[in-house]
């Protein structure tokens, strides 16, 4: 049923900005949808495309990769690499028949707890409209 579909989202957040941003949202007691499971990596440039593909293969409805704003990367260039990888990955997903919108890249800084809340809400709503991932294993 479309009405009670709750998307499962894997969040891969960078340690220095986005994960701290999620912390910020938590300590400020902001409410955001519980659909996203966050994994912390040291940099968005650490996000191996294999992680994303594996997540989809295991049935994730969406993957949210978040890193520092351009120019702010703790390791100088990591987020630029992530940006290019995600762009190519979206094309790959498209060819595999998975909607590229299911993969999202966002820049969220350590102080942007509110931005994180907004992003997850937007992403969850979009995925609810898209429906379950075609690779999702039906239970």
């Amino acid at each position: 049923m479309a009405g009670d579909f709750e998307p499962k989202i894997l969040g891969i957040f960078c340690n220095w900005c986005s994960y701290a941003g999620a912390d910020m949202a938590g300590t400020s007691r902001m409410q955001y949808p519980p659909n996203v499971r966050i994994v912390r990596v040291l940099c968005s440039g650490r996000v191996d495309p294999q992680f994303v593909l594996k997540a989809f293969e295991l049935g994730a409805d969406g993957v949210l990769v978040a890193g520092c704003h351009p120019g702010d990367c703790h390791y100088v260039k990591g987020n630029y690499r992530a940006e290019r990888r995600i762009a190519l990955l979206k094309e790959m997903l498209k060819q595999l028949g998975i909607e590229p919108e299911r993969l999202m890249l966002r820049w969220i800084s350590a102080s942007e707890g509110a931005e994180l809340v907004k992003t997850t809400e937007e992403f969850v709503n979009m995925l609810k409209e898209l429906g379950p991932s075609p690779l999702r294993k039906t239970s």
Binding site: D48, P49, L53, L89
Partner: peptide
Amino acid sequence: AKMLSALA
């Protein structure tokens, strides 16, 4: 995926 990553 590995080569895509390397090129990027």
